[in-house]
């Protein structure tokens, strides 16, 4: 578990005058699960969006499987480039609001990218998509449209949709925050299973239990910097930094 999958060096990002990320360093090994905690506005989501270049970072370097994805003529401009293809076909992302395509069936949501982007064979992609949907427990929903599904089911479809591109890394951006409490577990269970199969994952979450149980590394962010990071037991149970202590206190109180 020492091979570096992803390495961030001094990542900076600003929106206008607001400095959202002030030099983030992070290393993620292959198969590792990193849980990112922090108050809202701390830059957690922006960090994830920098990793797959939805928000190109303005400073620093990102190495994905050893390749620097912040170099190149178009990097940082948001335009199509070698880096974008390289990154987006290796990095899958799941969003807080699911963002399923409402005009397509569940199956088509999962098959669209492999067919349209990778030019894969339709029949084979269908078969694989059905297997993925079966794996997230939605084999009976393949022909439904997203609006007929519960939030938890939609989010599991979104996970299957990202997995259909055979990503090497999965990014989860507060994927249970928009769910009713009774639907959170089914999504976390899917993620647990994925972690146990060895997927490299960066998980922005407020679920401390999940971070403790599944995380190999916990990162606490505040104000655009990494305040504290380490093994879940250390960061969650014996936080050293006052800011971490205060945040965890507030989360546990609620």
């Amino acid at each position: 578990m020492s091979e570096s999958m992803l390495k961030l060096e001094g990542i900076q990002k600003r929106f206008g005058s607001l400095e959202v990320l002030k030099g983030i360093n992070l290393e993620v090994a292959r198969g590792e699960v990193v849980c990112v905690l922090g108050p809202s506005g701390s830059g957690k989501s922006t960090l994830l969006r920098c990793v797959n270049l939805l928000e190109p970072p303005e400073g620093g370097e990102i190495f994905l499987e050893g390749h620097d994805i912040c170099k190149g003529p178009n990097s940082g401009t948001g335009e199509q480039s070698w880096e974008l293809d390289f990154v987006r076909q290796r990095v899958g992302m799941v969003f807080q609001q699911f963002n399923l395509f409402p005009h397509k069936s569940v199956l088509e949501n999962v098959t669209m990218a492999p067919v349209k982007v990778l030019g894969k064979d339709r029949a084979e992609t269908d078969r694989k998509a059905r297997a993925l949907l079966d794996r997230v427990g939605l084999a009976d929903k393949v022909d439904q449209f997203p609006e007929r599904l519960s939030g938890g089911q939609q989010q599991r479809v979104a996970i299957a949709r990202a997995l259909a591109m055979d990503p090497h890394v999965m990014l989860f951006d507060e994927v249970t925050s928009a769910l009713d409490p009774e639907l959170v577990k089914e999504v976390l269970d899917t993620m647990r299973e994925l972690a146990s199969e060895g997927m490299t994952m960066i998980v922005v979450t407020h679920e401390l239990g999940f971070a403790r149980e599944v995380g190999d590394q916990v990162v606490f962010m505040d104000g655009g910097v990494v305040v504290e990071q380490g093994r879940p037991a250390d960061v969650l149970d014996n936080p050293r930094e006052p800011r971490t202590q205060k945040f965890l206190g507030l989360v546990l109180e609620a």
Partner: peptide
Amino acid sequence: PGGQMEAARSLGMNHGQ
């Protein structure tokens, strides 16, 4: 919603796709 474009782009589609 803007999330639709983000989801499509994160799946590897270019702007035109």
